[in-house]
């Protein structure tokens, strides 16, 4: 293993749900890498396959879903060929995840200390007392006051923001190499959101932890991530450095997403909306999945566009991408 091996390398990942009514290609041909200490944004509207991508990396895709193709390499080791037990050993110790709804992620009938200590003892053979000390320190680290007392509390005794901090501290407790944060701030108010974002960013810089930040809101990751992948209907349609993508989006979908972000509009101007709805992933028609909603669609778009590598590490999956001058 060389020093500049990326923390995570996903290649042509396909995660399909084999339901009674047909195959749902929730993730189809998704590739990206995340380097040590890097923050990768994963953006897309609801149902675009962001969470399923995250669960695939953890090996937690629920039946009837499974990884149907592609490779996931973590620090040079292939995860997809790993026996379940070894994959489980990585979960929560080397790769951890924070979920969207802090009200639902903690078990309501178990005390915080139980839920934190088990996260440690599942991976390390240490005494409860040591694990407890570590849990207390982890709570302190995410800014929870009087952690010793709070350890004895139950989840319902915390506010939503505090619960998300607890979830983060559980994710951090074993000093993982990669954290997948699945819209962790969506359910929180703006101030707390900003605090958590700031702390997450600082953490990655300080410890070299790689971070995948999933969101449907581009503004959230504008100041946070280094690179961004835009997903649509299970595929990555555009990828690149966050600033370049925000300044000169190439894909019509990204273009629409940025248009619908309030802060980038002129004050008082009506919000641009992307017309239409996400297509059903069941029986996707052939060709570009964005076709029905795309202002630039042409006959060419009836066939499936491939993803093109552009300069500066950017990539786009479109026959008629916007060029730089298109966004004024």
């Amino acid at each position: 293993m060389t020093g500049n091996e990326p923390t995570l390398c996903v290649e042509n990942l396909q995660t399909y749900f084999y339901t009674k009514s047909g195959v749902i290609k929730a993730v189809d041909d998704v590739s990206f890498t995340v380097d040590k200490g890097e923050v990768l944004g994963l953006v897309g509207e609801s149902g675009s396959g962001k969470s399923v991508t995250g669960f695939s990396i953890l090996g937690l895709v629920d039946p009837p879903g499974r990884i149907a193709g592609g490779r996931i390499r973590f620090k040079g080791h292939s995860l997809t060929t790993l026996p379940e037990k070894e994959w489980r050993n990585l979960r929560g110790s080397r790769i951890s995840m924070v979920f969207q709804d802090p009200m639902m992620t903690l078990n309501p009938v178990l005390r915080i200390d139980t839920q934190m200590i088990e996260a440690v003892t599942a991976h390390e053979n240490i005494s409860r007392q040591e694990a407890r000390t570590r849990a207390r320190d982890a709570l302190g680290q995410v800014g929870i006051p009087s952690p010793d007392e709070r350890l004895k509390a139950y989840p319902h005794q915390f506010s939503g923001g505090m619960r998300q901090r607890v979830a983060f501290s559980i994710a951090l407790i074993n000093k993982p190499d990669l954290i997948i944060a699945d819209e962790p701030t969506t359910a929180l108010d703006v101030t707390i959101q900003a605090q958590i974002l700031h702390e997450a960013q600082k953490l990655c810089r300080d410890t070299g932890t790689a971070l995948i930040w999933i969101t449907h809101d581009l503004t959230v990751i504008a100041g946070l991530s280094d690179r961004v992948c835009v997903m649509y209907a299970g595929r990555i349609v555009e990828a690149g450095g966050i600033n370049q993508v925000l300044d000169t989006p190439h894909h019509p979908y990204t273009y629409g997403l940025i248009g619908s972000v309030p802060s980038r509009n002129k004050r008082g101007a009506p919000l641009a909306q992307i017309a239409g709805m996400t297509p059903s992933l069941l029986n996707l028609p052939p060709g570009c999945a964005f076709r029905q909603r795309c202002p630039r669609a042409s006959r060419a778009c009836l066939t499936e566009p491939e993803i093109h590598e552009l300069k500066d590490g950017r990539a786009v999956r479109c026959f008629h991408p916007y060029e730089e001058e298109a966004t004024a």
């Binding site: 953890l58 979960r91 929560g92 088990e118």
Partner: peptide, 20 residues
Amino acid sequence: DYIKFARAKGLSNVRVIGVH
């Protein structure tokens, strides 16, 4: 979600089912 989160912590099935 809390069951998925418990599994994401790397807990064994025995612990997830027997406790959570």
